[in-house]
């Protein structure tokens, strides 16, 4: 058995007095794609954002319980949130490249973390990132053009390239394909599958088919609780909990 890279024990998350997540225990294994599914407002995005403390942006949000990455508590006061986010990248629902050139988009993370001291090194890293995001062949001749001149799918891959440029351990994805057409979705899904070799990926998705296609582990959240967590194959063929069954088969639960 491999040790989990992220491990949640008894995690409760509150917005003011409203509890959004109840006592979640979850182990995310390295080099696996873990899908978080569930109806809107079930807490899956809240959980995802708790992993790189994007919840800090919401002043009323409070996290209790233990959420560890590589054995260290993410919410330990000694943890620097900037260092955490350098290790836990994030890709958002809507492709959000910076209003800068393609090159600058990918180079930004490297620059702020001072990861590439020389210019040639920076260029190499940017090329490497774009290549790993499967975008290099499409943009190599127009790196100086604005990032938002690309198509939606390319923009999302640019965002993935930007995230992997700083070589995080974990990449969080919040419905990365919901704004993309099926072809672009297929390309991104293929990319996610190939990224699994290097990174641990946690993805929130509303598409059950997508979760079934790209993930190895699936967690089903319902009304703030983790209802079922296991191998994707099991969740989508023989779920144990009736709530899971009702959700994935589209039944009135």
């Amino acid at each position: 058995m491999v040790d989990p890279i992220i491990s949640a024990r008894g995690v409760d998350i509150f917005y003011d007095t409203k509890q959004a997540l109840f006592d979640v225990d979850l182990d995310i294994l390295p080099n696996k794609v873990t899908a978080l599914i569930g109806p809107s407002g079930c807490g899956k995005s809240t959980f995802l954002r708790a992993i790189n403390r994007m919840n800090d942006l919401i002043p009323s949000c409070r996290v209790s319980g233990s959420l560890t990455i590589d054995g260290q508590d993410i919410y330990d006061p000694a943890v620097d949130v900037v260092a955490l986010r350098a290790q836990v990248g994030m890709v958002f629902q809507k492709p959000n490249p910076f209003p800068k050139s393609i090159f600058e988009n990918v180079a930004y993370g490297l620059k702020i973390h001072k990861l590439s001291p020389s210019k040639s090194e920076l260029q190499d890293r940017v090329e490497w990132s774009l290549q790993n995001a499967g975008l290099w062949n499409e943009v190599s001749d127009r790196l100086d053009q604005p990032g938002n001149s690309l198509s939606g799918g390319q923009q999302q891959r640019l965002c993935i390239a930007r995230a992997i440029a700083v070589q995080p351990k974990v990449i969080l994805m919040d419905e990365p394909c919901s704004a993309l057409d099926p072809i672009a979705t297929a390309v991104v899904e293929d990319l996610i599958d190939s990224l699994r070799k290097e990174y641990t990926i946690v993805i929130v998705t509303h598409s059950m088919q997508q979760a079934a296609r790209i993930s190895q582990r699936t967690a089903f959240f319902h009304l703030g609780t983790l209802v079922e967590f296991g191998d994707t194959k099991t969740i989508f063929t023989t779920p144990k909990d009736e709530r899971t069954q009702n959700y994935i088969t589209g039944r009135i639960g």
Binding site: N96, F98, R162, V166
Partner: peptide
Amino acid sequence: PPSFKEAALALGASPVQAVFHHVFPV
């Protein structure tokens, strides 16, 4: 759009960096 700031923060930019690199110019 708050997405710029969010993206920068998610990359590990400090809040001041996120604001001055991405929000302020826009």
